[in-house]
């Protein structure tokens, strides 16, 4: 097992929705340039935790987050943090593919444009091509960059969303069940892609499918009823879980 540095360090994270506590003191380190999967039954808090990492929870009025989350050593809940700038560094891919109803090119170019990452049109074109190639979509769409992104198939749409996310070159990419709306073939392509992306990005993926977690991730964290039950090397979690609840879940007894 190689030595890795952590990019995200969460300590004692509590999340409340109004009166209801959704997460209880989660402490979890997420390694750099690896894929970490968050698994657990529905409502266990894995998506909530994911959304704490780029502060999407801020959008929910009644949501309250306490504890400490650091990315590259910076406290992302510190008052001087600009949420918008944070999200430029922590990209997100959602459950349902949600390309903007604009052209494929504009979808990818939007992030770099608002963050001012390119100096001219040529650079932008280069960046869009790079992102689409990275997302494995370039060959399929290079002749129709001006067509609308919503016209693509589900799997292509999701890869477009991934291209859109990596175009701003974030440190971390969060993926919230990115394959749950896709068929098995599209899923396989995305999983392969995730494996390749690990080279450049640290990826956190929430998934319902344990096979997927086993296939794509190097680290796994198991959530249950708002608690982090255990985390560690994916292989270890799946072959020799320490906690009974993890055991039950991966063998299909709960969930």
């Amino acid at each position: 097992m190689s030595k890795t540095t952590s990019i995200i360090e969460a300590k004692d994270v509590d999340v409340f929705y109004g009166e209801k506590q959704a997460l209880n003191g989660i402490s979890l380190d997420i390694p750099e340039n690896k894929v970490t999967s968050l698994i657990g039954p529905s409502g266990c808090g894995k998506s909530t935790f994911l959304r704490c990492i780029n502060r999407m929870n801020d959008l929910v009025d009644i949501c309250r987050v306490s504890g400490d989350i650091r990315i590259s050593g910076q406290d992302i809940y510190a008052p001087e943090v600009d949420v918008v700038a944070l999200r430029a560094n922590v990209g997100m891919v959602f459950q349902k593919p949600n390309p903007f109803p604009k052209s494929i090119f504009e979808n990818v170019a939007y992030g770099p444009k608002i963050h001012g990452l390119t100096a001219n049109k040529a650079e932008m074109e280069e960046l869009v091509e790079w992102s689409l190639r990275k997302a494995g979509l370039w060959n399929e769409v290079k002749d129709r960059l001006n067509e609308t992104g919503t016209g693509l198939s589900g799997g292509q749409q999701q890869r477009l969303c991934i291209a859109r996310a990596i175009a701003v070159k974030p440190r971390v990419i969060l993926m919230d069940e990115p394959c749950s709306a896709l068929d098995p073939i599209a899923t396989a392509i995305i999983e392969e892609l995730i494996d390749e992306l690990r080279e450049n990005f640290s990826i956190v993926i929430v998934t319902h499918s344990m096979q997927q977690a086993a296939r794509v991730s190097q680290r796994t964290a198991f959530f249950h009823m708002g608690n982090l039950v255990e985390s560690g090397n994916t292989k270890n979690i799946f072959t020799s879980p320490k906690d009974e609840r993890t055991q039950n879940y991966i063998t299909g007894r709960i969930g």
């Binding site: 910076q74 992302i76 943090v81 700038a85 430029a88 560094n89 963050h115 280069e126 960046l127 070159k169």
Partner: peptide, 14 residues
């Protein structure tokens, strides 16, 4: 095109 690692700059947006 390599991944130029940008500073993890999260206090000011563009």
């Amino acid at each position: 095109t390599s991944i130029q690692v940008r500073d993890f700059e999260i206090t000011t947006g563009n």
